[in-house]
Design a protein around this nucleic acid. Structure first.
Lengths: 179, 179
DNA sequence: GTCACCATGTAATTCGTTACATGATTCA
DNA sequence: TGAATCATGTAACGAATTACATGGTGAC
């Protein structure tokens, strides 16, 4: 599906940046639902360049260090917008190792079960706190045509998702403790 | 991480079955959070056999057709239980193309945005209905040491997840319509 | 000068999907 | 007799991670 392709085009459609910058974007909020390592980013950038969807300009940092500042071409913008408009069938639910484990949880003694659930709970609580902190940036809903809108939108979704996961875990911890 | 390995061991730990049966299990509730195609299952079974974690017995269906009925060995059970008890760090949030798209949604005109959201909403509503129907099987919480417990547990989680996703989508549709 | 970070690449391997390939059984 | 389903495999490809590899910049 070449999703990374469109993630990169989307970022470059907002502003020119380097491969390194793209990696940094993937470690922010965007990384909550799409990301890639630099070892995947650099080859993809090369591919997009070969396809004529992006161009670059070499900039010098300091005395020697070269960086490639990439920007999107007209052709790239078209490809991106075409992708963006597409209504696609629902993807299969993403894989989840923890839930797989819990599917087999009848083979665990109750204290171990509680331990695993609480361990998971703690981590989700931390993630939620982190997301909430990020969300403080947005005092209110950003203008629907601003770059911040998408960020707000998906951050809200991520927060809801964490909240409900926590609820689910707490529920089952409660139940296991009542056994 | 060899997760498929443990998914298969877990299934065979419940009862002996064929590769084909494993594939069918992945198309039921379990498939909501882990699955694999037969082209991945058969080679994995071979590998597990070579590792001494499972064995098989050839059965004849009808006149000619051979099927391999796999069962777990003692060694396999140990490996499975060791994996099952492990408390692991939170995995990164799974990738989600739709949310990636919405991250860039400021580049879409409002009607297209609403269309994409509603298209997604409809599909999630269908999935929720399907999950609810599956859940009817469980009149009440199954015994915590029965095979059904895990199924109930994760089905509940899947239903919560769909419910909150729908809520999130409806929220934003509402907002977009108010623009 | 050293440490965190900037910056860019390639190689090896694993995981997963799609396509290729074959054939039997069961039920209408 | 034809269609759906049972049943098992391999091959090619694509997506993603980990490891290998190198070197500059900036601030203390």
């Amino acid at each position: 599906m070449r999703t990374l392709k469109y993630a990169i085009l989307g970022l470059l459609n907002n502003e020119p940046m380097t491969g390194y910058d793209i990696g940094k974007e993937f470690s922010k909020d965007l990384g909550e639902f799409w990301n890639a390592k630099h070892s995947q980013i650099y080859p993809e950038l090369k591919k997009l360049f070969d396809e004529g969807l992006i161009v670059y300009e070499i900039q010098i940092s300091g005395e020697i260090l070269e960086k490639k500042m990439y920007s999107i071409t007209e052709e790239g913008k078209e490809a991106f917008l075409k992708w963006l408009k597409q209504a696609e069938p629902l993807e299969p639910t993403p894989k989840d190792v923890f839930r797989l484990r819990m599917y087999f949880s009848n083979h665990l003694d109750v204290p171990t079960r509680i331990h695993l659930l609480e361990h998971q709970l703690l981590q989700h609580q931390e993630r939620l706190q982190h997301l909430r902190k990020n969300n403080e940036r947005h005092q209110s809903i950003p203008p629907h045509d601003s770059v911040d809108f998408g960020d707000y939108f998906i951050l809200d979704g991520a927060i809801l998702r964490e909240t409900v996961t926590i609820q689910w875990l707490e529920n089952f911890i409660q139940y296991c403790k009542s056994l």
